[in-house]
Amino acid sequence: MSLWIDSLLAVLAVFLAVRCLLAPTLPQCVFLFFAFGLTLALAWARLGAVDVAIAEAAIAAGFLGVLLIDALRDFSRSRSTGEGGDRPSRVSQGLVGAGVLVFLVVAIEAVWRVPNGGGLTALAADNLPQSGVDHPVTAVLLNYRSYDTWLEVGVVLMALLALFATGGREYFCRPVVRAVDPLLRQVILLFTPVLFLVGAFLLYLGKTEPGGAFQAAVLWGAGGILLHLGGWPVFASMAPWLRHLLLTAGFGFFLLLGFLFMAGGGALFEYPLAQAGLLILVVETLAALSIAAALTAIFAYFNGMSAESAEPFTPASS
């Protein structure tokens, strides 16, 4: 009986993916992409991957959705269908279609007959007591494979630097007009503290239940974005050195801690069992803070880039 739900979710996800790419106009494509993100989040919840469901819903459908809506305005102003419609020539499309079809058949046969590798569940469960946290996914993320997580906190920072590399940095601190609507202002003022509280709750929860650095980071980022939208560019108007400190805190402290313990004769990112839980919590908080700051900065940059405020490009000192 429960197979019905899974097959319906799977078919819905595939249908949304296809519809999203075939949608004639951009707004349809964007909102179908949100639906795809939500269906995927439900699929993760159905597969027992609660951490991933929160991350997918918050980051992929939430944060990226906000960027897409912000970009949609510029792209939909100009003739969104583009000259000559959105289809390349019939021949090349047929060719690509055939190639992808062959790829699909081979992929399905491969995925269908994957031998059962057994996975690392047992190993992860046995080493859980030595990892200092009780929730297995947090143990993997911040102890067994903490090198991956550290690099990945760096990738978010690099994406922000890359964003600055595409154009002037002055989009970042463009004055934001205060929201005129009283109700909107009140709602934002009410919602932002709730968001920060729920983020902190999820962060602390990460020790025993699904939750943790990235989920908290995105909720805090959402709070920062709401403040920016409401007209309080709290992050953009911060002192530059404080902003840099906040952005590099997560990535830098993680490394600093690793070096300290390496100097003390362990391997990089090896935490002694006694303080492992506390250290992981500290590292998680700083990583969440710096990712939230990076996400808010990315949105602030995006918002400053919107068309009507982009006068001809004036080089400013960095």
């Binding site: 959705g65 906000v66 809506i69 729920v198």
Partner: peptide
Amino acid sequence: VLAVLLVICF
């Protein structure tokens, strides 16, 4: 949170 964020941003 997601629903609120999208609407206010829009």
